[in-house]
Simulated scan of single mutants.
Amino acid sequence: MRDCLMHPEHGYYSTRDPLGAAGDFTTAPEISQMFGELAGLALAQAWMDQGAPAPFALAELGPGRGTLMADMLRATAGVPGFHAAARLHLVEASPPLRQAQRQALGDREVTWRDRLEDVPALPLFLIANEFFDALPIRQMQRDGPGWRERCVGLRGGALTFGLGGRMGVAALEHRLADTRDGDIVEFSPEGQEIAAALGARIAREGGAALIVDYGDWRAQGDTFQALRDHAPADPLAEPGKADLTAHVDFEALARAAAPALHSRLTPQGVWLERLGITARAQALAAGLSGAALESHVAAHRRLTHPAEMGTLFKVMALYAQGAAPPPGLDP
């Protein structure tokens, strides 16, 4: 997954802008400005609830085209002291996407970082939307008291899946209680490392992180998938030509992020409704008509309806001991 997505010459993200109608997939910020506006105001409220520390790091992991951060900054422009105290950091490895982010954010002062660890040690208010799903995973298939790893190999000149020998996996000891022979469990060592770094930073410096992605509290089953031209594709067919993702195991992230606290996992639609997306949608609709209004109504539905992104996508916050979770989320 890492080579297919991030190889400097052949990697999917290293060689293209994958978003939008001309790309392979569309994310919530690209669907409607309302997503970024509400997320930005939620983080700004969390900042105020923690005493409005100044300066602080306002950061995003995997910022896409910069649309989400641009919407967040526009929505929070009226929050007293927020922009003056914010130091903007975008954690992005893709050169084409960095260029798109620069265009989206205009003349705002931005620092790009290759890793979360490079963000200065300040109170951290961060968002990660559809970031963890693209991190490399390992797949383990239950075999008696142990596991066999699902690997990629060559057969007849073509890539194919196969199974390694039985082994113990310390990170999955707790999953022996809820799995049977043949069950597949996925986990992302890199995702857990980043969650651990986030949790340690927030516990030490203060702040909050919003994690928005598709997945559930506990992973089970084969969710590894490829997307090309907005349609499912064979993940092994053309390495570097399709987006590769897997569902996020939010429980694993929460466990790794201790001693930071985590909110209750909440469906994206519920979270957005709690933040007032319907009222915002109605206000925006007042100035629209015809095709623009139809598109706006469809965007609201796509973000919130259980049959669309509303239930598949979940939201979880990490936050400091003694603080409240960001708005829209329960402890």
Rank of each mutant, 00 (worst) to 15 (best):
M1P: 10
R2P: 00
D3T: 08
D3R: 08
P8F: 02
H10F: 06
Y13K: 03
L19K: 06
L19G: 01
E30S: 09
S32H: 01
M34I: 11
G40Y: 05
G40C: 11
G40V: 00
A44V: 09
A57T: 07
A59W: 11
G64T: 14
R65E: 01
M72K: 13
A77V: 05
H83C: 02
A85N: 12
H89N: 10
E92L: 08
Q99L: 03
D107E: 15
D107G: 11
D107W: 07
R108I: 04
R108K: 08
R113S: 13
D114L: 07
F131I: 09
R138K: 14
Q139K: 13
G144F: 09
R150G: 00
G153Y: 00
L154D: 00
R155I: 00
G157F: 04
G164W: 11
V169D: 04
L172A: 14
L176C: 03
I184Y: 02
P189V: 08
A196N: 01
L198V: 10
L198C: 09
L210T: 11
D213Q: 02
D213R: 07
G215Y: 06
D222M: 01
F224E: 11
G240Q: 01
T245D: 04
H247A: 08
A254K: 14
L261F: 12
R264K: 06
E273L: 07
G276W: 03
T278M: 14
A279N: 08
R280K: 12
L284V: 01
A285C: 10
A292E: 15
A292K: 15
L293Y: 12
H296N: 10
R301C: 13
H305M: 02
H305W: 03
H305I: 06
P306K: 05
A307C: 14
G310M: 04
V315L: 09
V315K: 10
M316P: 02
P326W: 05
P327H: 09
D330N: 13
